[in-house]
Design a protein around this nucleic acid. Structure first.
Lengths: 233, 233
DNA sequence: GAGTGGTCTAGACCACTGT
DNA sequence: CAGTGGTCTAGACCACTCC
């Protein structure tokens, strides 16, 4: 009755999904162990492992050694967002990209930012404000702090030619970090920068990235009204 | 000089990361193939494969058969968001959870919603409006449409006792869908529902889920001011 | 202690794709 | 066509954790 043979990890995954959807395996149920499923499906245990691990990654199964594999009772769905560099995002939509540097200075940041980046007292770092534009319209406003003591090379960069977003991505390869998404209501400042009305709802991304030596950069991106970030699950 | 032995896929991944960070392998570079790395590291090719595949999943490497593996020039960073059910999110923060049903009715939805859910003309579906509260304060406002023709069981549920969010998660197990994040400025309606001022920036999640037979549900969640969604990368 | 998932190995074949 | 990643296999050992 199964119709298609079960030979690869994708079909194992599909069969497991079917059993969950048909409520043969209900939320909270313990499912057979890998060895049993492997012999049932006629494949190697590693193949079953690959499939179940993938489902556990998406939050649909919960696995623990010795305890076995259960169907998640309250699935925490995991959505994966793509965060491209801004120029790519804009040109990818078919718009002309332009970056406008608003200001750049080396100063002592506000106390909350200094704390978040764990700076020494009165430590001066680079502050860069700029605007990314799509077809000449403001697209996102970038307010960035870069720890020029951790990344000295940044002092020699001409940010009127290349956005800090892009320079960092290309020159400070891999870093851990965190991202937060939130919303903001346009005040006079945001309205002027983004050429919109005050009182518009604006989408905001705050991001910080880190190296062993300390915080590299912390940035707030404020998007023009109507911006959406979208993904499939 | 490597200090630690390279025996498992995590250490292979770490070594690859080190080589990228130290610019031994620069963005755009072709790196040695799996067989070469395996013999260099003294492990099996499958182990190298696991490590490189993981890095490709996070967007740091680009892999193509025959073409080989390259360090991504413009890494599209992938952030994974956890989307818990709302009750869990609230109780997980240590707040008391309460759900208040505002209204429920079976009606013909507005045209844009009917189109998004691909309904037949004049098809009536279930519309449920409710409010999730944390410690008695409005937390998120839920405006949901459920295709009661695809999910007939929903007609017998008492949504004053259980939120549709939770009922769907537990009873309509796995579905594909899409999710979008955006921002909204509180108007009079949102301000009243969420007990906030008009003109506050509100975080919005729109989600639709699908089954083979058609759209199951489409929901807009409007969060109280100050809501952030956070993840590490 | 024992059962389960997590991982490694060595070898094999397949699928895709650049040349 | 040939080189590369993608995957499967059978077997093995290990790590964790429930009882």
């Amino acid at each position: 009755m199964t119709g298609t043979a079960i030979k690869n990890w994708q079909s194992v995954q599909q069969e497991v999904l079917n059993r969950i959807n048909s409520k043969l395996w209900k939320p909270g149920d313990l499912i057979p162990n890998e060895a049993q499923l492997a012999s049932e499906f006629g494949c190697a245990r590693a193949t079953v492992n690959r499939a179940l691990q993938n489902l556990a990654d998406t939050g649909l199964l919960e696995r623990r050694r010795k305890a076995g594999t259960r169907v998640a009772t309250h699935p925490v769905r995991k959505a994966t967002l793509d965060i491209p560099i801004i120029r790519k995002e804009i040109t990818g939509k078919g718009y002309a990209y332009r970056y406008a540097l608003v200001s750049t200075e080396t100063v002592v940041p506000p106390r909350d930012m200094a704390a978040r980046m764990r700076l020494k007292p009165d430590e001066k770092i680079l502050h860069i404000v700029g605007l990314h534009m799509a077809n000449g319209e403001p697209y996102v406003f970038e307010n960035r702090w870069i720890n020029s003591n951790v990344v000295p090379a940044v002092r020699d960069v001409d940010f009127s030619k290349q956005s800090p977003n892009e320079w960092l991505v290309e020159n400070i390869p891999f870093t851990s970090g965190d991202i937060a998404f939130s919303a903001l209501c346009a005040g006079a400042f945001e309205a002027e920068m983004l050429s919109c009305k005050t009182g518009e709802g604006l989408f905001v991304i705050d991001r910080s990235t880190w190296k062993a030596e300390g915080a590299i950069t912390s940035v707030r991106l404020v998007f023009a009204p109507g911006y959406r970030i979208h993904t499939e699950i």
